[in-house]
Design a binder for these strands. Sequence first.
DNA 1: CCGCTAGGTGTACGGTGTACACCTTTACGA
DNA 2: TCGTAAAGGTGTACACCGTACACCTAGCGG
Lengths: 240, 240
Amino acid sequence: MTLLAEAARRIPLNRDRVLSAAVVLADEVGIESLSMRRLAQELGVVPMALYKHVANKEELLGGMVDTIVGEIGPPVPDAPWKSAVRLRVLSARQVLLRHPWARPVIETRTNVTPAVLGYMDGFAGMFLTGGFSVDLTHHVMHAMGSRMWGFTQEVFDDSAGAGNQHAQVPADARAAMAQQMAENFPHLFKIAAVAAHEDGSVVGNGCDDQYEFEFALDLLLDGFERLHQQNWTSGGGKGK
Amino acid sequence: MTLLAEAARRIPLNRDRVLSAAVVLADEVGIESLSMRRLAQELGVVPMALYKHVANKEELLGGMVDTIVGEIGPPVPDAPWKSAVRLRVLSARQVLLRHPWARPVIETRTNVTPAVLGYMDGFAGMFLTGGFSVDLTHHVMHAMGSRMWGFTQEVFDDSAGAGNQHAQVPADARAAMAQQMAENFPHLFKIAAVAAHEDGSVVGNGCDDQYEFEFALDLLLDGFERLHQQNWTSGGGKGK
DNA sequence: CCGCTAGGTGTACGGTGTACACCTTTACGA
DNA sequence: TCGTAAAGGTGTACACCGTACACCTAGCGG
């Protein structure tokens, strides 16, 4: 913080240094702890200095997203649309898993940046060059939604029942909770019971996120394929 | 604020009054303007008074979600699973459209409340009583994700290009922007052009949200149906 | 050498959630 | 009828947030 930071302070800040520092910081401490003040401190600089390189926090977040969109890497050329899309989504997913903060940020973003538009454009391109009609491509893009980025909106989530503090909650209390769950939410209970049985864990979501993601992704892709093959148009399906 | 609020203040606050006032306020001013202070003011009470009925803001938000989950209404009984699910989702969607703040709140919720669990349980129940295996139901629930609540994660969104201030941006500037978009994002441009042509608007998203939503929903439901009919299990598809 | 400008500083304002100690009203058992 | 305990409302205070605004300073082109 003293000599090193001091030396680093010599070479002046710039937008990129700010953005990548923000990415690193968010990776480390989580997006909810990323404040302008904290980021400035990390850069050995006074908070207001950041505003010489970034208009406001909104723009900072946008820039951070841009930064990691750059990590996704280009689409593989000359692949059939389906595998091209699949690979790109899964590769985006890898990036997003490295930067867990990105999901909420992307979701709440309001002003889409050129980099993001570029990514989406490439995405649409895969369908179009795959022979999809413009019409179908449009709807398909909507149907992909945020799955385009490699994440699903999980409403399930862990943390509901007992937790990771294994022995924290005594076994009998946990049993009582399970019992109550079985009474009040029998269907969820069934599902959870099977999922829990599949791997060892007793409670905490026994779900393979990657598997669930690919399950849904492939379901969609297969659907797209079918529509494409039967020359679907928005008029035919159920009329706009 | 004076006599009426004073009179209302006589009858003491309770959790429900707090929650429904919060819902109303969020409906009116948006979730980002819903602060404890503002809500307290609306109730003619000092901020800290709220904490006698709600542990903290997190819990307030959770309670608000509970409140509107109650608006969704019960599932229709004895309908085939597909239409039952479809109806329930679309009815949830109606509620969520009335309370636009609910989407971000549900998405960021971490501690799922019983009411939410109840809704999800009913959801799972429709598949199970429809004959779905527990296994398939599990994956199907994940695949639904937040679509269960009637909303899609729109990464597209308006506001990107020009806006609603029709004459604000001169026509030539708008043309220049369109030109630039055509150059940088040719695929998106094609899609947008068609969508814009379909209805009158020149720019602003020419998308029928309801249509897009149902398109994706039906795509998923059809996919589920197919898997169900062919007795899909997680082993068969692509192996867990 | 001057002066302009890009970049860093310091202070200050209005907002947030909420901890904590306090007061007031109400309900109820003796 | 009264005393008291609890439930509910109040006031103050703290730490934090984003950022407006005025200022200073170093470096560079004319």
